[in-house]
Design a protein around this nucleic acid. Structure first.
Lengths: 336, 336
DNA sequence: CTGAAAGCGCTAACAA
DNA sequence: TTGTTAGCGCTTTCAG
C-alpha cells in the first residue's frame, strides 16, 4: 500500500502533520504560501492519501454500496451507469455487491455493511422475499438506504420506482385491445413489490376488459434460465396455450422468442408479446418487440441523488420519499 | 458507522482486545471455550468489524478495483458478473470505477488507487490511448494489475483477451466468401490494442482474399452514439457505399441496423453485417446478426482468477501471462 | 496561522 | 493460552 504519508511530507517541509493535513484539505486556517508549498511537495513526492486512515478517523467512507441481484441485463447495467455518474461527481466510490437473487447472500452483505463499509446503500432486493431487519438496523445506525426498482415492505425509506401498476395495466390493456383473451403473465417471485404491483395492474386491466382473471395464467419464473425455458415450452405447447404474454422483467422476454421459434409459433400471429425491457435491440428484433421501457439510467441517477441528499444533509429525511419515474409503452410489431 | 467494537466485546467478556481479535480470527492460540464465548458474545451484541480499521492496520483492503470505460453494453456487464463471482468467493469486495472513455478520468482513478484503496486492479483501458505510467507505479508498489479485453502496451503484466486478430480475420474472410468486395471496418480509437489486432486481422484477410486494403474503409467511431449514427449514415448514403461491414465492438452493431432501416437498405441484400457482440438478442434480430461472440463472463472470471493468484501468492508472477480466450464466429442471416 | 497530542478500531509483536 | 503495548495514517480539538 501507499508509503508517502502525511508525516513524511511534514518532515520534508519542516511542518507538522496537522498543518499538512489542513493544507491538503484547503483549510482556511492555513496561509496561502504554506498551502502552496504543501501542494507542491505533495505533487513532487506523488503523495496519495490513505483512504482507510481517513475513513477510520472521520467515520465515513466516501463509499456507497449498490446491492443488486445481478448485473447481466440492461436494466441494472444502465442503472449502475447512472449511479456511478452521480457518485463520481460527489467524490464517492461505488461498491457493487451482487446477491445472485439469494436473500441469504443479501443478508450477509447487509450485515457486513453494519461495520461501516459504506456511508449509504442503494438496493434492489432479491426476488426471494426479503425481511428488512438488516436494513432497519442500518437505518438506525444512520446509514441511509434507498430502494430502486425492487423495494421491500416494512421499512420507511425512499424508493425510486416506475409506475409499475399503471404500466402493467397499459400493457395488458393493449393486448386485450389487440384481441388477446388468454394472457399469460410471466412473473418472478410474487412476494416482490414490483411483481405485486405489476400483477395488480394486469388484474385490473383484465377486469376492466371483461376477462376473468385466472391464477394459472400467472407463471412463476425463477432465476434459472434453463428452467424458465422448459416451463415456457410446456405452457406454449399446450392446446389451450395463451394468445398473449407479458414478460414482467427483462430477462423473461427473449426466452419467449426462443420458445416460439423452437415451437414454430408465429409472433404476433399465434402469440402477442410485450416485455418490460430496456433492450436497445428491442426495435430490431424479429419481430420488433413491444416494450414497457423503464428509465433505468434515470432511476439510477435519481436514487443516487436522493441518497446523496441524505448524505449531505442530516436533516433531510428519506421517509415517505417515493419517486415514480414513468415507464413508456412502446408499441411495435410483436403485438400487431 | 459501527459502534460495537472489539474493546466493548472484550470488556463484556473480561478479556483483552487482543484475545478477542484472535478468537474472532479463529487463531490457534486461543482455546476452544474462549473462542466459543467470544463468538457468542459477538453474535449477541451483533458485532461487525470495522473494515477500515483492519485495512489500515494490515495494509490490505480486501477490495479489488474494476476499472472500465462504461457498463452499458453486455460485454462489460457480463464481465462484471464474472469478476464479482470470483471476488465474492475469495471474500473480496469489488469497487467499480467508470472512466467514461476518458483517459484523464482513468489517470485520476489510478492515481487514487496509489493510496491503497484496492489490493489489485482489473482494467480495460480507455479508447483514448493510455499511457501506462500510473499502472507501472501501481505495479511497483506491489499492486497487481490485470488487463482484460482492452490492454495497453508498455507494461509487462497479465492480460486476458480474446483472439482478436484471428476472429477478425475469420469475420472478414467470411464476408469475402459471401461476396463482399468493399468491407467497412467500424473501429473505436485505433491506438487501442484490440483495435490494432482486429484491424490487422481484417487487413490480412483482405490480402489473402485478394482485396486491396484501403485506409478509408476503416471508420473511426467515437463514444458519442449520435455522432456515430451521423457518420454511418453519411457512409451508407454514398454511391460507392460498402457491401459489408464489421462492427468491431458491440455498441457499433445496432447503429448499423438503425441506419440501414432509415435508409431503406436491406441486410444482407445491400449490406452484410458482422458484429463483435455478446447480445443475447443477436439471434433474434431482424435479420439475425452474425456475431463474433466474446466470452465476456469467462474473461471476467479468468482475469479475476489471475489477479487472485497474484494476491494470494507473492511469488506468483503476472509477467508475460497472456490468456487468450477464443471468440466464436456465429454465422446468421445478416451475412447470408 | 501553526503545532502537540490524542485517538478512530484493529492487529501483531512480545511478554507473562 | 492470554494480556500489554504500540501503532497503521489520518484528522481534530485545543494550545500556542
Amino acid at each position: 500500500m501507499g508509503n508517502v504519508t502525511i508525516r513524511i511530507l511534514a518532515r520534508q517541509l519542516q511542518l507538522s502533520a496537522a498543518t499538512v493535513s489542513k493544507a491538503l484539505a484547503d483549510s482556511h486556517e492555513i496561509s496561502g504560501p504554506t498551502k502552496k508549498r504543501v501542494l507542491e511537495m505533495a505533487a513532487a513526492l506523488n503523495y496519495t492519501p490513505n483512504p482507510y486512515a481517513s475513513s477510520l478517523r472521520r467515520k465515513k467512507s466516501k463509499t456507497i454500496a449498490v446491492i443488486l441481484p445481478e448485473v447481466a441485463d440492461s436494466f441494472f447495467s444502465q442503472a449502475i451507469n447512472g449511479i456511478e455518474a452521480i457518485a463520481q461527481d460527489k467524490g464517492y466510490h461505488v461498491l457493487v455487491c451482487l446477491t445472485h437473487e439469494r436473500s441469504q447472500k443479501e443478508q450477509a452483505i447487509l450485515h457486513e455493511m453494519l461495520g461501516g463499509r459504506a456511508d449509504g446503500i442503494l438496493i434492489s432486493v432479491t426476488s426471494e422475499t426479503s425481511d428488512p431487519a438488516c436494513l432497519l438496523e442500518l437505518q438506525e445506525k444512520g446509514v441511509p438506504v434507498v430502494f430502486f426498482d425492487r423495494t421491500c415492505d416494512g421499512i420507511d425509506t425512499a424508493r425510486v420506482v416506475t409506475d409499475d401498476l399503471q404500466s402493467s395495466y397499459k400493457a395488458t390493456d393493449h393486448l386485450i385491445r389487440q384481441g388477446c383473451r388468454k394472457i399469460a403473465f410471466l412473473a418472478i417471485a410474487e412476494g416482490l413489490s414490483i411483481s405485486h404491483q405489476r400483477i395488480e395492474g394486469y388484474k385490473q386491466a383484465l377486469e376492466d376488459g371483461g376477462i376473468k382473471f385466472s391464477r394459472e395464467n400467472i407463471i412463476a419464473c425463477t432465476h434459472d434460465a434453463a428452467e424458465n425455458l422448459r416451463l415456457l415450452k410446456k405452457i406454449m405447447s399446450r392446446k389451450d396455450r395463451p394468445d398473449g404474454v407479458i414478460a414482467s422483467v427483462e430477462k423473461l422476454a427473449v426466452p419467449v422468442y426462443q420458445v416460439c421459434r423452437e415451437l414454430g409459433l408465429n409472433i404476433p400471429g399465434d402469440l402477442k408479446v410485450i416485455g418490460f425491457s430496456n433492450l436497445v435491440t428491442a426495435a430490431f428484433l424479429q419481430p420488433a418487440l413491444t416494450t414497457v421501457t423503464q428509465p433505468a439510467f434515470e432511476m439510477g441517477r435519481s436514487a443516487a441523488s436522493l441518497l446523496f441528499k441524505a448524505l449531505g444533509n442530516k436533516n433531510f429525511s428519506l421517509s415517505q420519499q417515493v419517486e415514480v419515474i414513468p415507464s413508456e409503452l412502446q408499441v411495435r410489431e410483436s403485438t400487431g
